[in-house]
Design a protein around this nucleic acid. Sequence first.
DNA 1: CTTTTGCAAGAGCGGTGCTCTCGATGTTGT
DNA 2: ACAACATCGAGAGCACCGCTCTTGCAAAAG
Lengths: 256, 256
Amino acid sequence: MLCAAPEAGIIAAMNAIQGARSRARAEITAAIKEEARRQLADEGAARLSLRAVARQLGMASSAIYRYFPSRDDLLTALIVDAYDAVGAAAERALGSAGEHPDPVARWCEVCRAVRGWARDHPHEYALIYGSPVPGYAAPRDTAAPAARIGRALLIVAADARSAGLFTPPGPGRVPAAVADDLRQLAGRMAGDAPQAPPVPAELLTAPLIAAWAQLFGLISFELFGHFNRVIEAREEFFTASVTLLAHDVGLRSPGA
Amino acid sequence: MLCAAPEAGIIAAMNAIQGARSRARAEITAAIKEEARRQLADEGAARLSLRAVARQLGMASSAIYRYFPSRDDLLTALIVDAYDAVGAAAERALGSAGEHPDPVARWCEVCRAVRGWARDHPHEYALIYGSPVPGYAAPRDTAAPAARIGRALLIVAADARSAGLFTPPGPGRVPAAVADDLRQLAGRMAGDAPQAPPVPAELLTAPLIAAWAQLFGLISFELFGHFNRVIEAREEFFTASVTLLAHDVGLRSPGA
DNA sequence: CTTTTGCAAGAGCGGTGCTCTCGATGTTGT
DNA sequence: ACAACATCGAGAGCACCGCTCTTGCAAAAG
């Protein structure tokens, strides 16, 4: 493995050397994030304490600042990870239901995957979809990961259109300013991920964006307790609501 | 005043005396809440500090605890006030659009009132509809104020039905467990506010509850920054989305 | 007038985020 | 191989936090 390809070996060795110190850095950074994520899951973002993380890791609290310049930066890292995790969950559902012929069912599966992740990681969900952190830290890093589940929903619609099961929402009048926003957004999405299949602009509709936001209204109400003593059959209610959302977006089941 | 009407005079005097000290209490309590609300609006709930409130009011920090046993209790009081404020805004919109013959427009006005209040008081909105506070303080006190805007939405539907402009959402299958929840909820709402006109149970539908939650999905996404670089024509988009929601609920415009 | 009660103030405890300095420990250039 | 360098951990310390306890004072109650 060392001499098979000389140049590759040298590069690997250099990586290993530089890796020797920066791997230690990466390992400690990962350990800090891991412990922070545990505390986040246990107590929530408000109770996450740098000193407690350091204590648990057996290091001085001041040493943490070699890896994260502030508490808000640690939280920002956790935010990015959370966006990636929920995005991955949505994409997994999208893939595993890929062959499903019913776009409505596929839409529901993606939504259910997001809800399932949220229920499994309530504090991480609250971190990204609840009140923004006071520091309001992450402007750019989170943009791409945050778009993943929106993109997953869009792919459901795109595949439905390929199968002739998408009827663009017609009668609702879309204001011109909103139409402009949607055009710009389509261009931005194409520019951000050039390798991904370009999303047809006519699928990026106002009802789809609204459904995207409304999905999180449903999840947040459930997780944040607003359905207490209102709706107890949470799963059934969510599936029914999200099915209605699919129809609003323009998806049709094959039989209909 | 003492001998005019003996019993009444004594009672009035006792009220005045008790009022003398308990009015001071009420005034200081109100001042604390007012200053706390100012800090909440400035910096958000996370940065609200009892010591800073006391400092601003020129009193020792320990004196605050005579009025609020803990920081979470102060926050709970602010939460109740915020629910009342947004509920009042919704009811005001309901009343001022009372004579409007179009239920869809009325629905939109209520929704726009909620959104307007949220934009004017973003931190208070985040306090009640964002991530729950770690202390998870208020279980019962908030239930009634929180129901006010849901009730306002319901009244729009009820008046629409009276005008023959409500078509109950039909085709979507409602699971039996959800139907049970709705029945129980209708009973509970009738019991909680016996003086209010009883809400017809057939108006308390799953789509209406869903629309209620989804409304806050739209508002939260806007306020919490998820529409940044996505939708800039916020007002137009909101109105369009909320109009679609009205149709989902079963409201019809008179002309249609 | 005395006693009881309610309130404000101060000191203090343990905790927090964060900064600074100071040695120890590599890593790098000559 | 040695010196110069950058990196890192640890400790002390600052200002702030929520909260408790005690003390003294003033007003109400008897």
